[in-house]
Design a protein around this nucleic acid. Structure first.
Length: 457
RNA sequence: CGGGGCGUAGCGCAGUCUGGUAGCGCGUCUGGUUUGGGACCAGAAGGUCCCGGGUUCAAAUCCCGGCGCCCCGACCA
């Protein structure tokens, strides 16, 4: 009996399990450069779906997308004291613009051409506050220019000592929102608005319940007045910082001279916010729901929501079954579902089941001769349970099942979180402890002893 | 930067202690039979044994020196 590569059980080694799930689901792969990650089509599709949902939310709240360059003059980073201190140890620098031949062969065949050394090295952005606020200074003149609400989708580079697929990679994809406001109240409102969007997105799309809270002084963003965060609880009982929203105060406005004229003719510095979520969310999705059979993907973010597996013995059956399966595929697609008909020859149905389960497909319809005769399909859910559904109205049945699965995943994740909380306190994990505060956001996140923190944004 | 594990076919590994023709499973390709939970038979392709030195008649194996990857720490918005 042929057996595919096994996934290390969660209980045995969580880290190995996590890596195995990613490899088996073909979400990502290691790159030739240490710490960098290739995001494969399955993983990238999840990210695209996340992007679309978040982007809609940002735009509905009045934000516009823009794009700022990858390279930032090194001197920009130095303009805000805390900011440079926070990022100095992990920036990638561009110092030369040309290579020259050395006459050797192999790896040493080329070297930087000294004649091409840049007068001022360029930083590969670890985040874009500095270059964006430098531009804001040009664009903002009057109170009429405020608020300015921008977002960009891009990559950033942070030279981390230790990396994990999706959770902390040298280069990662994210969105970073940057806004400018006339007063602190408006900036505070914005920072909390975004925090609410992040929370809603985590719960409604990732099916990941999160705590919203304030980071401590030592953990807040370098250069921020105050950092809000959402934190989810993973299956290893560790918290994951899944998104942050910063009230930057006037720190960057002063550093980059972003001033505006008030209605009464005065001159004031703007108040900024910045906020971001990254491809780390994909890691959070994996660690929140998946099991020893592989990825479990919330239906709303699943690259493939329904897989159709036809079953046959003879050519005659094959034709009959495929005809029905193709019709069902068409109906599901017409209903807007992401569906794949797996008509591959030479693979037994069981082999297909295992494969699609590892990839996290939430719902599978098996259609064989018996089902065709009974005008039904067998519906199997990724998280368990198998029942026949009539072919009539199958698209509606599928849509309903997907909604139920999405809701069940959130409920299960909530339950795990409750089970892990200690007395009144909303949550205490091995990674992050917090205590409630009367002024919502509801929690203060603090590093617990030598506990691991996974901060990104 | 410390601790541990590892580097041999696309993937997973055995072989290393005790030097002697490069192996196994999965996958891939060809042909045939199969298909309701990981199919089977037959044949085939596929290798700088991480790199560089050294010892030896002979090195995947022994010695010296590098490099890389994974995990755990430290560090980290």
């Amino acid at each position: 009996m042929a057996q595919a590569e096994k996934i290390t059980p969660r209980a045995k080694d969580f880290s190995e399990w996590y890596n195995d799930v990613i490899m088996q689901a073909e979400l990502a792969d290691y790159s030739p450069v240490r710490g960098c990650m290739v995001i494969r089509p399955n993983g990238y599709r999840i990210w695209e779906l996340m992007q679309r949902a978040l982007d809609d939310m940002f735009k509905a709240a009045g934000h516009q997308n823009a794009y700022f360059p990858l390279f930032i003059p090194m001197s920009f980073l130095a303009k805000e004291a805390e900011h440079v201190e926070g990022f100095a140890k992990e920036v990638a620098l561009v110092t030369h613009t040309r290579l020259r031949a050395t006459g050797k062969t192999g790896a040493g065949a080329v070297e930087p051409d000294p004649a091409s050394a840049l007068e001022e090295p360029l930083v590969v952005r670890p985040t874009s506050e500095t270059i964006i606020y430098a531009m804001f200074a040009k664009w903002i003149q009057s109170y009429r220019d405020l608020p300015l609400l921008l977002n960009q989708w891009c990559n950033v580079v942070r030279w981390e000592l230790r990396t994990r697929l999706f959770l902390r990679t040298t280069e990662f994809l994210w969105q970073e929102g940057h806004t400018a406001h006339a007063d602190t109240e408006d900036a505070e409102r914005e920072a909390r608005l975004i925090l609410g969007i992040y929370r809603r997105f985590a719960e409604e799309w990732l099916a990941m319940p999160v705590l919203t809270g304030v980071k401590t002084e030592s953990e807040k963003f370098a250069g921020a007045l105050r950092t809000y965060a959402i934190e989810g609880l993973m299956q290893d009982r560790k918290a994951l910082q899944a998104g942050t929203s910063h009230h930057l105060g006037q720190n960057f406005a002063r550093a980059f001279n972003v001033q505006y004229q008030t209605a009464t003719g005065g001159l004031e510095y703007v108040w900024n916010t910045s906020w971001g979520v990254s491809t780390r969310l994909v890691g959070g999705l994996i660690m929140t729901h998946s099991d020893d059979n592989g990825l479990v993907c919330p239906p709303r973010l699943a690259p493939v929501q329904v897989v159709l597996v036809p079953i046959w013995k003879s050519d005659e059956e094959r034709a009959r079954v495929l005809e029905v399966a193709t019709r069902v595929e068409g109906e599901l697609k017409a209903a807007g579902l992401r569906v794949v008909l797996d008509a591959r020859d030479g693979l037994k149905p069981g082999a297909k089941y295992f494969e699609w389960e590892a990839r996290g497909v939430p719902l599978r319809f098996e259609i064989g001769p018996k089902d065709v005769a009974a005008e039904q399909a067998m519906a199997a859910r990724r998280t368990g349970g198998k029942t026949p559904v009539p072919l009539a109205g199958i698209a509606a049945s599928a849509a309903l099942a997907l909604e139920e699965i999405q809701a069940a995943l959130l409920a299960a994740a909530r339950q795990r979180r409750e089970a892990n909380s200690i007395r009144g306190s909303p949550e205490r994990s091995s990674s992050s402890s917090c205590r409630t505060r009367e002024d919502s956001p509801t929690a203060v996140f603090a590093a617990a002893g030598s506990a691991r923190r996974r901060s990104r944004t």
